[in-house]
Design a protein around this nucleic acid. Structure first.
Length: 271
DNA sequence: AGATGTCCCTGGAAGC
DNA sequence: TGCTTCCAGGGACATC
């Protein structure tokens, strides 16, 4: 499932190639999470000015307006000039003079939304509530501590909510909490400054490690050039229920938190 | 304002 | 073999 590393790997894998491309045509498959928000013809002739990322959203900036792309749970992008004919799960093809940008998304939790500008109400509704970027300088331990102080919910759920820090999904939340030695069920506000500092470092370390390995490929994630990721091979807890902890050999446990699985080591991760 | 539950969707695995 | 059921989960939204 695409989290920040996968989205960033995707961005880097075709940002340079699509820069300056001119849109020739648009093909839509089955409906995605939200309607596109403009007519296909409105995009024809637009030029791509850049590709940036905010949280798990990719922002394809055009000379007029912007396409917000989200990969949801099962989405992946491809960019190339020799793509195969669209299959049943290819729901968005943006043809340009530099190649075709294709969104493949079997579960269709993903989205492509056109907004005339980032100040647009629709863009703001999606982006305004997002927390700090974990790999930017603005993510620093004291601010993180202050943000967590006001939260009574479990730390795992606060991480996933994305309003404190963005981009940390289920895999990396579980892994960062393991690295920091913190139980996922611990209330956020009960974390000491020292433990928040450890968690801060763990979030950064896990995301950077995942980035360096090309992300996690659980089922079929790949970059826009088709390269899989390898972080899943290093997971300490995610998906390892019943297996021995790689650190202490205690059995990894899994629980449900807010309809989502959490994995942890009962020995290494304390209250 | 924060916390919680619901919903969207399909492929794969497990159970019968 | 072929059915049914369950599970995976990002995140907007409604509700308390």
């Amino acid at each position: 499932m695409p989290e920040l590393p996968e989205v960033e790997i995707t961005r880097r894998s075709f940002a340079d190639q699509i820069m300056g491309a001119q849109v020739g045509a648009l093909r839509l498959g089955l409906p995605l999470r939200w309607p596109l928000g403009c007519a296909a013809a409105d995009l024809v002739g637009r030029r791509v000015l850049g590709l940036t990322r905010r949280g798990k959203y990719l922002l394809l900036q055009l000379d007029r307006g912007c396409l917000l792309l989200h990969l949801g749970m099962s989405g992946s992008l491809r960019f190339g000039s020799e793509l195969a004919p669209p299959g049943r799960h290819d729901h968005f093809d943006l043809q340009t003079d530099r190649g075709c940008l294709r969104l493949h998304d079997p579960r269709r939790f993903g989205a492509v939304v056109y907004v005339p500008s980032l100040d647009d109400a629709r863009a703001q509704r999606l982006l305004a509530g997002l927390g700090v970027e974990p790999l930017d300088a603005g993510f620093e331990p004291e601010r993180f501590y202050q943000a967590l102080r006001g939260r009574r919910a479990a730390i795992k759920q606060v991480l996933l909510a994305g309003d404190v820090v963005v981009g940390v999904g289920n895999i990396y939340a579980c892994e960062a909490l393991f690295l920091a030695g913190i139980r996922p069920t611990l209330r956020a506000q009960r974390l000491s400054r020292a433990r928040v500092a450890r968690l801060h470092a763990a979030v950064v370390a896990v995301l950077q490690r995942a980035l360096s390995l090309g992300g996690s490929t659980l089922r079929d994630f790949a970059s826009a050039q088709g390269e899989p990721g390898y972080f899943q091979l290093e997971a300490m807890v995610y998906g390892r229920t019943g297996l021995p902890c790689r650190t202490c050999t205690r059995t990894i446990k899994s629980i449900r938190q807010g309809q989502r699985s959490s994995f942890f080591c009962p020995q290494c991760q304390t209250f």
